[in-house]
Design a protein around this nucleic acid. Structure first.
Lengths: 224, 224
DNA sequence: TTGTGATTCGAACGAACGTTCGACTCAGGA
DNA sequence: TCCTGAGTCGAACGTTCGTTCGAATCACAA
């Protein structure tokens, strides 16, 4: 069953699934470069050379983990957005979908967030493309928010990438025993993104904002 | 001059400075594990064995980069916060200080953000401690914001870590030629953190918030 | 000039790396 | 019974890894 070209049919093999699951754990724990094929062999219970029956190289291991994770998240997102039209709700769905998947698959999440630069060639292009599709979805939703007259005049690229930053950084600090789970967490983060942490006070005008900035400038100068 | 215990006196050596600067670049480009001492030797123009006159191990290279960066950021922050009392301004100072340093030292920033788990033993403890101090500063400022009655009832840990997520994620996407510089960027991110991206609409009440959440639940169920 | 400690480096160490190869087992069809 | 192809693995390949060591060079005080 393995040895085929398309990633999806590859994953059809039960044993490859097991290998990928253990690989994700090992990559998450030691990083891609820090993890050795021998570590993965030991963790998955497959002999060193046996791994190469299912996979062409260490890079392909990482590629399969990344591409499968992105595909799944994106497919779930499309399904959940169907029928939703209110931009604010659509954004909350995106956040919830992202966090729900990430907290259910913390190892894959860590690998996705950290091993961004290591893939090369066709692997890299493939992953970059699906990632761009995902980013595009978020951007679209934010633009809808703006068109609906609800979002302020912000650089959309920065707004969306900041949102992803909030979400993806979770892998560095989230402890399941201590921190809120996906439902509560996505509520908080959606609220923060949409309305910030401040209370009833109105948003500063552009003018006050400028004044605030120059305050910083003065402070910086005073501090040397 | 080198071969001394305290990191600060170590950096007093000009040549060690050069080595650390090139090390940071190499670590940023290939990751800690992916980078070899030979890469660093080549980049810094110091022979392979020559490096070990200035440094005990590859780990110490990473340690010196991280500890020096944190020390500098923290010291600058203390200086700039002196005399500022308005919590909102203090927060903006923190954000500006963070981004200003990070965009001026993108390599160190990448190393700090990515190589969080690789240090061991005393190195690890040292870095963890100063990082905790930095996090504590942010937490304090957020609590001031709350005491001043300005911040909503949010889990402070999540709020602060989300802010750091926004800021630290920058290393994955910021292109100096395309994206705003530190001043503009810290304005946008401070505003986003404080007031969110939404327009004049009032923050949803707790009740509407719950309704919003259950909307997601229904959507998730409908989507299977 | 000689001696000394700081600095630099070429060459080598053993260990670990990703990958390959040929042999083996085993189930199922002829 | 024999053959075939999928699945599995031990052993080894050549390379690269972090680190060490002893010798060479240097600046400078005696």
């Amino acid at each position: 069953m393995p040895r085929v070209a398309t990633p999806d049919s590859r994953i059809a093999s039960r044993k490859l699934e097991v290998i990928l699951r253990h690989s994700a754990r090992v990559f998450a724990e030691k990083g891609y470069e820090g993890a050795s094929i021998r570590d993965i062999s030991r963790a998955s219970g497959v002999s060193l050379s046996g791994l190469y029956y299912y996979v062409e190289s260490k890079q392909e291991l990482l590629y399969l983990i990344q591409i499968h994770t992105f595909r799944t998240i994106l497919a779930q997102l499309y399904r959940q957005l169907k029928g939703m039209s209110d931009p604010a709700v659509r954004l909350r769905v995106l956040v919830h979908n992202h966090l729900e998947y990430f907290l259910r698959h913390p190892m894959e999440m860590k690998v996705l967030a950290r091993e961004d630069d290591v893939l090369a060639g066709e692997y890299r292009k493939d992953v970059a493309e699906i990632k761009r599709r995902y980013y595009g979805m978020a951007l679209e939703i934010f633009e809808e928010l703006r068109r609906a007259g609800q979002a302020r005049q912000l650089n959309p690229r920065i707004a969306v990438l900041s949102l992803f930053g909030m979400m993806n950084w979770i892998h560095t600090w989230h402890r399941p025993q201590v921190d809120p789970q996906a439902d509560a967490l996505s509520d908080v983060m959606s609220q923060m993104f949409l309305h910030g942490v401040m209370n009833g006070h109105r948003v500063e005008s552009q003018k006050t904002s400028r004044a605030g900035r120059s305050t910083l400038k003065v402070a910086a100068r005073a501090a040397g």
